[in-house]
Simulated scan of single mutants.
Amino acid sequence: MAVQLGFYVNQSRCAGCNACFMACKDKNDLDDERAFRRVWESRSGAFQESGNGLTHTVKAAWLSLSCNHCDDPKCVTSCPTGAMKKNKEDGVVWADVKICRGVQFCIKECPYGAPQLNKKTFRISKCDMCADLREKGEEPACVAACPYGNIEIGPIDELRKKYGNIAVVEGLPDPSITKPNLVITPHK
């Protein structure tokens, strides 16, 4: 493989605006049941009575997440038709809709929920890092849409040098399962 592409997501600055989610849905013409990129919300805390009135430990955080184009993609290894593929040039995992028969093993095996079933065509599709846009020298729709610049795409080795090696936050699966090509700056 020439280079492995990955995503960097700065969760610490994400405001949960969903611009990345909507840009991806619009660009890929996805129906309401499918989303290649999702914004996950986590909330915790409570208001508590104290000597000075109410205090709180309330916090909320968002994480923009799509396919992580894993080193060990369970969607690829579980696909009986060979429709799920990992590109040798850039490591992007993609679905060949011409071969797909809608078996859905990829959906069951992906711990990130990346493969999505199109119920009209009964074929699987998923994030391909906007291969068509990248081919024209443009950024993926989610990257271009983020008003805070919280999503980056690039060679994963470079992203890890720049931002570190964190690939898991609360609620995500253990990265040892698939070895995701993802770097996160977590919310504090």
Rank of each mutant, 00 (worst) to 15 (best):
M22C: 11
D90H: 05
V3Q: 11
A95I: 00
V9N: 07
N18T: 15
V97Y: 00
S125W: 05
N28P: 04
I156R: 10
A144W: 01
V183D: 01
K120I: 05
C142Q: 12
W62G: 04
V92D: 02
C70M: 09
G164T: 12
T185H: 08
E109N: 15
I153C: 10
S66W: 01
L63P: 01
T55C: 03
A114V: 04
I151T: 07
C24R: 06
R160N: 00
E135Y: 05
V58F: 14
V58L: 15
F21I: 07
S42D: 13
N68P: 03
P80S: 11
F47K: 08
N150F: 00
K126Q: 15
G45C: 13
E33N: 12
A83D: 00
G149K: 06
C106V: 05
Q116T: 05
G137C: 11
C100S: 02
C14R: 02
K162S: 08
V92A: 08
Y148R: 15
Y163E: 06
D26Y: 11
N10A: 09
C146F: 07
G149F: 02
C17F: 00
N28K: 14
D90R: 01
C110H: 01
Y112H: 12
R101A: 14
A2S: 15
D128R: 12
G51R: 10
D29N: 12
V169H: 02
K179P: 01
L117P: 01
C14Y: 02
C24F: 09
T178E: 11
N165R: 10
H69K: 06
A83I: 02
F122L: 12
M84R: 10
T57Q: 08
K85H: 06
N18C: 14
C67P: 03
G91W: 00
F122N: 13
Q116D: 04
W62D: 05
R37K: 13
Y148C: 09
Q4T: 11
W94L: 04
I177K: 15
P111D: 05
D174R: 11
L159R: 09
A60W: 07
L133R: 15
C17V: 02
Q11E: 15
R43M: 07
V103A: 14
Q104P: 01
K86I: 03
L172A: 04
A95P: 00
V143M: 01
I166A: 04
L159P: 02
N118T: 05
I153R: 08
I124N: 06
G91P: 03
W62C: 07
C106K: 06
K136A: 10
D71Y: 03
R38K: 15
Q4R: 14
Y8E: 07
H187C: 12
Q4A: 13
F21G: 00
V97H: 00
N52P: 00
I107N: 06
C75I: 06
V92K: 08
F47N: 09
A145M: 09
A46H: 08
S12G: 10
A60F: 04
A141W: 08
N52Q: 13
G53V: 02
C20K: 13
V103C: 15
D157E: 15
C67L: 03
Q116M: 09
C79V: 03
P80T: 10
M22E: 13
E139H: 03
Y163V: 03
C20M: 12
G149L: 04
